[in-house]
Nucleic acid binder design. Structure first.
Length: 120
DNA sequence: ATTCTGACTTGGG
DNA sequence: CCCCAAGCCAGAA
């Protein structure tokens, strides 16, 4: 074929980075509901990459992402590194409490109840 | 280019 | 209930 291919005149839409795809999913979690890291990874079509969902949140700058609605598979708020006195964990818990999510004495929430798509 | 790092999950003992 | 090993793989240095 004739003309050599050149660079597209207009920048093609950059595909979402993996992190952005996780953030897009997290943005859709309704108030008062949660999703686990594994759920987010799976919904993004990357089962097995749960860990990286957390990493994507650690790198988060976009304030519109409700990061506090993501908990681990045991219904707990995960610890992060470099979190002085667990301040970030407290912040997450308070945010969820404000949305009506209740925690038991062990600091765990009932996934069967609050996980997005769960009854009740 | 290469190496190191995780806000996790699952399965097995 | 606890602890551990393996799997995951894009970013950051």
């Amino acid at each position: 074929m004739g003309a050599p291919r050149k660079k597209p005149a207009v920048t093609t839409a950059t595909p979402l980075t993996e992190y952005q795809s996780y953030h897009a999913i997290i943005r859709q979690i309704p108030r008062g509901s949660v999703l686990t890291y594994g759920d987010v990874a799976q919904l993004a079509g990357r089962p097995g990459s749960a860990r990286r969902v957390g990493y994507s949140l650690a790198a988060l700058k976009d304030q519109t992402v409700p990061w506090w609605r993501v908990v681990n598979a045991r219904g707990e708020i995960s610890e992060r590194s470099g979190d002085f006195m667990g301040a970030a964990q407290v912040e997450q818990r308070v945010s969820l409490l404000r949305e009506g999510v209740e925690f038991d004495a062990d600091g765990k929430l009932d996934l069967a109840r609050y996980r997005r798509g769960a009854p009740g």
